[in-house]
Amino acid sequence: MFKTVFLATALIAACAIPASAKPQKPSQSANRSNAVQGSTPYAQRDDAMQFADDLAERRGLDREWVRQAVGQARFLGSVPKLMLPPSKGTAKNWRVYRSRFIDPIRIRAGVRFWQEHREALARAEQEYGVPAEIIVGIIGVETIYGQQMGNFRVMDALATLAFDFPTAHPRAKERTEFFRRELEQWLSLSNRTNIDPFEVRGSYAGAMGLGQFMPSSWARFAVDFDGDSRIDLFRSPTDAIGSVANYFKGHGWTTGMPTHYSVQFDPATVKMDELLAPDILPTFSATSMQAKGALLDAAGAQHAGPLALVELENGGDAPTYVAGTENFYAITRYNWSSYYAMAVIELGREVAAARNATLASSR
């Protein structure tokens, strides 16, 4: 999370400006060398300019506009370091991770957010089938309800990761391709909506708004939920609420399905290696999971769909385990981490409990 010093004006017309509008040129403030520690400016890099040419042809964009935008992007030296996984030997710790997101400040902010936007949350739950507490959990974990939306220029962040993703990362090739697609989506969106691609700020990975949508998610799942004929994920909490709900619906959220069940183990029969082999992908029926020694609670034993044994490490202490459903897996499509998914679920529950207590005390 990052302290917000933030220019949000650029995307408020994302659905209002016709595709034929002439794109703005990148601002003059962007026209400076991006040389950092001897790096070559992107305007002088063959790979960056070839990317720009290919993108312009593929998307039917003005070639010089695309080359100028890519060429003026600045390399951000801190960003590649932030993408590297923890060093080997760093123990994961669910309790520590949880404490970063489930705290009194975030819970109080969540109660205020829910109260202020209860109608939009109720409507999103009705239209998309995604519980309000999951939407509240996402926006709270991502940005503390809009308080910390990021201070990196999205264009710079995406260009840095598209052309200088750290080679030390175990998935460097895959992630480089991902961020090149996101850069393409960002330039296409900027062109289509007639905005300066350098004006908008977000996370070090290029995510934007209250729900921290990547450009591809904005293009696919962002909705005008407040009905003002434009999409603004920065300054319209209603649009952000509807867009998060639509994202989950698009990733297979099943209305009414729990996210997970409690689980215990039969030491005499548990086949832990087999249970953990699929990772968080729901694979086992309730019957087969129990046959492998993972004993579900009463509700879990009746679950009709596939389940996954989710392991949350606790440093040197015993791990925490739950049986995750397809809805648990859907939350990990927002961020591919079981720790993240549990933080979203538990923050939403804590905010719901605090809100209910507040309402009860005011009666």
Rank of each mutant, 00 (worst) to 15 (best):
A298T: 13
N314C: 13
R175F: 13
I139A: 04
A13H: 15
D47F: 01
P41I: 07
E313H: 12
R100N: 13
D164A: 10
N314S: 11
N151E: 11
H251L: 06
K25P: 02
Q212T: 02
W114L: 07
I280T: 11
W186M: 11
F51Y: 14
M155P: 00
V223I: 12
E346H: 09
F6C: 03
A240K: 09
F328D: 06
S78F: 03
S229W: 00
Q290G: 13
W94K: 03
G150D: 05
A268R: 13
R45V: 07
K88M: 01
A301I: 00
Q185K: 11
G150E: 05
A91L: 15
M214S: 06
V136Y: 05
P166Q: 06
A352P: 03
N356Y: 01
I280D: 09
E116H: 09
A318S: 14
F284A: 00
D232A: 09
A52W: 06
V5Y: 08
I105E: 14
S229R: 13
Q37D: 14
A205T: 13
R108V: 00
Q24C: 02
Y247P: 11
L295E: 12
S337R: 08
G202F: 02
R333Y: 07
F213M: 06
E184R: 11
S361G: 15
N335M: 04
V344I: 07
E274P: 00
R175D: 03
F284T: 02
G71P: 07
I12Q: 15
L11R: 02
Q264D: 14
I138P: 01
Y261G: 04
E326G: 10
L55V: 04
G324C: 05
R74F: 01
V322H: 11
W65L: 12
T193D: 03
A205E: 11
H260P: 00
A301F: 01
P278A: 02
L359F: 08
K173G: 05
R59M: 12
G129F: 03
Y42S: 08
F198I: 02
A298N: 09
T358N: 10
N356T: 11
P131Y: 08
P258W: 08
D224Y: 10
L187R: 06
V270P: 12
